[in-house]
């Protein structure tokens, strides 16, 4: 059991990472990574929704008729996202206002649907929970790295604090969505070229 947990976690963080290996969740990667703060809240939201929807889908997996399983997953995911939205509005109005439409964007994140389909449908609730958390973290750390560089180069700040002085010419493109494409491409290139080189060759 413990071995399995470790294996799932490692795979989701590295070899099967949802962002740089499976290339899922790109929509939100482009949208939220220009400021670190938004990225972090988005990541927390995603970890939460992925874990809980995985558990729910896994618990119901024997009852869900195969033909409508995607409808059911979508319903479950949407419900959790609405829940996150309501809770943020009620208890953290400032964060909610900052994030605006991004919370709703969690629904469109293919990672959640992908994990529900590929993992939770065939595994026990606890393992699905672990899978959801580790997929979420696998997504989060990649986004945070991208956001760090985008915010630094695009606005000269980190977490809203100015670190690069007036001498730095801000790269406006880094703040806009195309900047994320460049950053993500560079990231994937480095990871695949350096760290996952052996795996690529073995293929």
């Amino acid at each position: 059991m413990n071995k399995k947990i470790g294996k799932i976690t490692l795979a989701n963080l590295g070899r099967d990472n949802p962002v740089f290996v499976q290339v899922l969740g790109i929509c939100s990667t482009l949208a939220v990574t220009n400021v670190l703060k938004n990225t972090l809240v988005m990541s927390i939201g995603l970890v939460f929704v992925t874990a809980l929807s995985n558990v729910t889908v896994s618990m119901l997996r024997k009852q869900i008729p195969t033909r409508i399983r995607m409808m059911v997953s979508t319903l479950i995911i949407a419900s959790y996202v609405i829940l996150v939205d309501i809770v943020l509005k009620a208890y953290m109005p400032d964060v909610s206002r900052q994030l605006g439409p991004y919370v709703g964007l969690i629904i469109t994140n293919c990672i959640i649907m992908g994990r529900a389909e590929a993992f939770a449908m065939n595994n026990k609730p606890f393992l699905s929970f672990v899978d959801g958390i580790s997929s979420g973290i696998g997504y989060s750390y990649v986004l945070l790295i991208i956001a760090f560089f985008r915010e630094l180069m695009g606005s000269g700040t980190i977490w809203g604090v100015t670190v690069l002085g007036d001498w730095w010419v801000k790269w406006s493109i880094m703040v806009m969505a195309p900047g994320a494409f460049f950053m993500l491409a560079v990231f994937i290139w480095m990871v695949k070229g350096v760290i996952l080189k052996d795996a690529e060759v073995a293929k």
Partner: peptide, 18 residues
């Protein structure tokens, strides 16, 4: 029929909770 009933009831449960 089971499919329809299932979808209906699960939607009902989630909507009530929300």
């Amino acid at each position: 029929i089971k499919m329809v009933v299932f979808m209906f009831s699960i939607t009902f449960v989630f909507v009530v909770v929300l």
